[in-house]
């Protein structure tokens, strides 16, 4: 807690790395959203390049496959005029920590400025941030089941765009909370930004044993859980959950926890529907809802670029200030 705050922030409270939402305060999250707003406003009119990261080298270091997250980071960096190096490392090639560190040391030697890290193990981004030479920023693009802070911030950005204010909002997060780094980061962000209530809705097999300790209310029934809800966040269901005896079938999951039009009607009439993607149509969400009027799923994708530009430019600015 103190530890991760200390690692992410400079003594002046500026963003040095972006590893987790936990430990950040409301003003910093608001600063990220405001900075993203300045980029989003522009990109809606015409795609424009900013020279903020000119001459900087950003490495997308992906130990786990991802197309969308990597692409949006890539686009964000390009729009900030940075040079981007994409490195995909099959997890099997770096099964041990020492080789993870060797990879980092080799890249450091190439004078890079920022690592965007995705890894299948919780704590990997922390580990890299603890061991990189000073001056390199680490942005967590998803570590195991721990955190995916830029995804959570683009979700917050989307909510703020549409709902204007967080106070008074009731947010439901539905699906595989247990394995979701996105859900953990969203819960921290929503609590810090001061929503009225966060409800997690899932069968017990997909909930952490101590879910309540995350300051959420827990519900196993969509019909109860969706009442008075302003924001519905659906999570992607991994197919392998059927094999691990966590669920009997996709069909039964959809019946109980899938969002269809009937269940959507339980929420407030102006509720918005979000999903971090990629969508499993007919598993966690019906196509008619995913493509319906209340869905903001595609806007989320677009805002993802602005939010990532914001985080990258803020971390780089901190670094430049420290150099001076």
């Amino acid at each position: 807690m103190h530890n991760s705050r200390h690692l992410q922030l400079t003594e002046q409270g500026k963003l040095r790395h972006f590893l987790s939402i936990e430990g950040l305060d409301r003003s910093l999250l608001t600063e990220i959203l405001d900075t993203a707003e300045s980029f989003a406003g522009m990109s809606e009119q015409q795609v424009k390049k900013y020279p903020l990261l000119r001459g900087k080298t950003i490495v997308n270091l992906f130990f786990e496959n991802s197309t969308r997250t990597r692409t949006t980071f890539d686009l964000a960096a390009t729009r900030l005029s940075a040079d981007v190096l994409n490195i995909n490392i099959a997890t099997s090639a770096t099964a041990k920590g020492e080789s993870l560190l060797d990879t980092i040391r080799n890249l450091e030697a190439m004078q890079v400025d920022m690592f965007i890290v995705r890894h299948s193990l919780s704590g990997a981004a922390h580990f890299i941030a603890q061991h990189v030479v000073p001056g390199i920023s680490v942005i967590n693009a998803g570590d195991g089941q721990h955190a995916h802070p830029t995804q959570a911030m683009l979700d917050m950005f989307t909510i703020r765009r549409i709902k204007k204010d967080f106070s008074g909002l009731r947010v439901a997060i539905i699906g595989d909370i247990l394995h979701s780094r996105v859900a953990r980061s969203q819960i921290h962000a929503l609590n810090i930004l001061g929503v009225e209530e966060i409800r997690v809705i899932a069968p017990k097999t997909l909930l952490p044993a101590h879910a309540q300790s995350l300051q959420v209310s827990v519900c196993h029934d969509m019909h109860k859980g969706l009442q008075d809800i302003d924001v519905i966040i659906m999570l992607r269901l991994q197919k392998e959950r059927m094999r691990g005896a966590m669920l009997p079938s996709e069909r039964e999951y959809f019946q109980c926890f899938g969002l269809d039009e009937e269940k959507l009607h339980i929420a407030k009439p102006d509720a918005i529907v979000m999903h971090p993607g990629p969508i499993n149509r007919g598993v966690e969400i019906a196509s008619s809802v995913a493509d319906g009027a209340q869905s903001v799923i595609l806007q989320q994708v677009n805002f993802g670029i602005a939010v990532r530009m914001a985080v990258m430019s803020m971390a780089m600015q901190t670094r430049e200030e420290r150099r001076r």
Partner: peptide, 9 residues
Amino acid sequence: GAFATRYGL
């Protein structure tokens, strides 16, 4: 427990 829940372990 709460720690594993929070840190996704």
